[in-house]
């Protein structure tokens, strides 16, 4: 399967107060080929998607998501996290081809 330049992007506030719930938005570039489409020659284009997304904060899980081919291309995921202390969000998008696209974001909690 092709290598994809997913350029994952995340939007996380830079600061928060202890225990605050912050909104997180993520977007990755990916065609999310669902295995149903036919190419110009009438051949089925094989499935190639991001099948899993994980967000952690200081190694504790915020959300885990199992993804199927019916999610739209360029997956957009918005959710909320609770931040007990300063630290780092880690984001990982797992591609069918074995690649893992990663992003991190620091937040200062005071």
């Amino acid at each position: 399967m092709d290598t994809i330049d997913a350029r994952p992007r995340v939007r996380v506030p830079r600061t928060a107060s202890p225990g605050e719930v912050v909104q997180i938005r993520t977007l990755a570039n990916h065609p999310m080929e669902n295995g149903e489409r036919l190419d110009a020659d009438g051949n089925r284009v094989p499935r190639h998607i991001i099948h899993r997304f994980v967000c952690t904060f200081n190694d504790e899980t915020v959300i885990e998501m199992d993804i199927e081919p019916s999610l739209a291309a360029n997956p957009f995921i918005e959710f909320e996290a609770e931040v007990p202390e300063s630290g780092t969000f880690h984001f990982a998008w797992h591609d069918d081809n074995g690649d893992v696209y990663e992003a991190t974001a620091d937040i200062e909690v005071a």
Binding site: V22, E64, F79, E80, A81, E82
Partner: peptide, 9 residues
Amino acid sequence: VHFGPLAGS
């Protein structure tokens, strides 16, 4: 989606 201990909602 599975919500972990730090899910804010």
